[in-house]
């Protein structure tokens, strides 16, 4: 049976899809057979970020409606052996998802994969609800700002009360905090919430801190998950987060302001 992971946040634009793509790719890189499922029906993006948008034939809604089999709809990643994508439908809306249909698809996926990553849409409505309903673990993506923290807090409340595990009285969903778009300089200036502040308010385990990075935008536009850019700080931070997800103890990096190196100070350098 697969482990079902939901990547969620409540708020939009905080980096859920970037994170889903990065974590999914990271797990596949480490040899785990992984599928990433886009739950954002009507506003699909995952295929773009994973670089498979030109190969989408059937999608999630087709599978739910029985127009296609899972085998037909799953898109195999070109770079990695163990990685698959199930795209969302662009022509439909969230009402096309039913709890029964989603449950069936998740069940079938969990028989063939080690990890099923559910990329949740923003909000707390049907799409987001179904993305987290079947989850075993949740990665709550949060930006270091008050509105994002508040929405994440709300989402954590729903994870604890409105999921299948909660309704069946099973062990609760394991929650991980992933802080993205973190800028230590702005934290020092008091313009941004610090890691400790967010951790204290949400009081869940910190999975990782992804620094604000040019590499993320570049990776998105190229359709290459940022974790594959192992030169970038964001890529390395995601890599650490995947290791922690798999139970490794890895120290947190990129929390402090970078001190410019000797040569950089002499000649000035690009960021």
């Amino acid at each position: 049976m697969a482990k079902i992971l939901v990547v969620t946040s409540g708020k939009g634009g905080v980096g859920k899809t970037t994170t889903s793509a990065a974590i999914g790719t990271g797990l596949a890189l480490r040899g785990h057979k992984t599928v990433v499922v886009d739950f954002d029906v009507g506003l699909r993006n995952l295929d773009l970020i994973m670089g498979c948008e030109r190969r989408v034939v059937y999608d999630f809604v087709n599978v739910i409606n029985g127009d296609a089999t899972l085998g037909q709809a799953l898109i195999k990643d070109k770079r990695l052996e163990n990685l698959y994508v199930l795209a969302a439908s662009q022509t439909r809306d969230k009402d096309a998802l039913t709890q029964e249909g989603v449950g069936k698809v998740i069940d079938e996926l969990s028989q063939n994969f080690e990890y099923v990553i559910c990329d949740s849409p923003a909000g707390i409505e049907k799409g987001a609800h179904l993305a987290m309903y079947f989850a075993d673990e949740a990665i709550v993506v949060t930006n270091p700002e008050v509105s994002s923290v508040r929405d994440s807090d709300r989402m954590l409340g729903l994870l604890a009360s409105k999921s299948r595990r909660a309704e069946n009285g099973q062990e609760p969903i394991k929650e991980h905090l992933l802080l993205t778009r973190y800028n230590p300089e702005r934290v020092n200036k008091g313009e941004m919430l610090g890691v400790e502040d967010v951790e204290e308010i949400l009081s869940i385990r910190l999975l990782g801190v992804i620094p604000e990075s040019q590499a993320v935008l570049k990776a998105s536009n190229q359709g290459i998950p940022v974790i594959l850019d192992d030169q970038s700080d964001a890529g390395q931070a995601y890599s650490d987060a995947v290791d922690r997800l798999l139970g490794k103890e890895v120290a947190h990096r990129f929390l402090d302001v970078k001190k410019p190196g000797f040569l950089q100070r002499l000649f000035g350098g690009r960021e």
């Binding site: 508040r150 807090d153 709300r154 954590l156 409340g157 729903l158 604890a160 009360s161 609760p172």
Partner: peptide, 8 residues
């Protein structure tokens, strides 16, 4: 015994 979140 568990955290009480916004909206609860």
């Amino acid at each position: 015994t568990t955290p009480i979140r916004g909206g609860q």
